[in-house]
Amino acid sequence: MEDREGCQVIVNLRVNDEIRSAVARPADTLLDVLREKLGLTGAKPGCKNGDCGACTVLVDGWPQKSCLVLAVEAVGQWITTIEGLKDTPIQRAFIEQWAFQCGYCTPGFIMNSHGLIQHHPNANDETIKDWLSSNICRCTGYREIKDAVTSVLKEK
C-alpha cells in the first residue's frame, strides 16, 4: 500500500507572538498541530467537525474553529490561543461570573468572546448571540456566559 504517512512538511506558525515550527502532514488540522506538535492543549477537540466551537482560536484576530483549518493554511497568519491571553478582562469575567463548570468549552468560548469584544465593543444582544451560538456549553445554562461577556462590554 502506498505510504501517504511519509509525506510531511515543515510548518512555521506564528502562535502567541512566537514563531513555532512543526513537522506535519499537509492534511493535519491546525487544532491537531497546536495540540500534538506544539503542546498547546488549551484548544479542545469536541467534534472535529465544526459543530461545537471548543477548538476556537483567533486567526489574525478573528475566531476560527481550528478543526476546520489546515495547519498549512495558517502559515503567515497571527494565531492566538487561550495560552496567549494573559489576565484579560474576559478571563477575569469568566471567573467572576461563574461562566464555566467543567471548563472544557471555556477556552473556545473565551477566544470567541475575546474576538467579539475586540471587533464589536458595543455589541448588542443580537450580535452576541450571532457570535456565541457557534459554541456549545453542555454544563451551564449560558446565562453566566452572557453575564461574563456583557460585563466586559459594559466596562468598555
Binding site: 492543549t41 479542545k44 477575569r92 471548563g103 471555556t106
Partner: peptide
C-alpha cells in the same frame, strides 16, 4: 467561594485526559 481550579480553566492550563501526549 470561587472554584479552586478557576485560573487553570480560563488559561488553558487545565488538563483533561485527552491532553496527555
Amino acid at each position: 467561594v470561587p472554584r479552586k481550579e478557576s485560573p487553570d480553566k480560563v488559561t488553558g492550563r487545565a488538563k483533561y485526559t485527552g491532553d496527555s501526549m
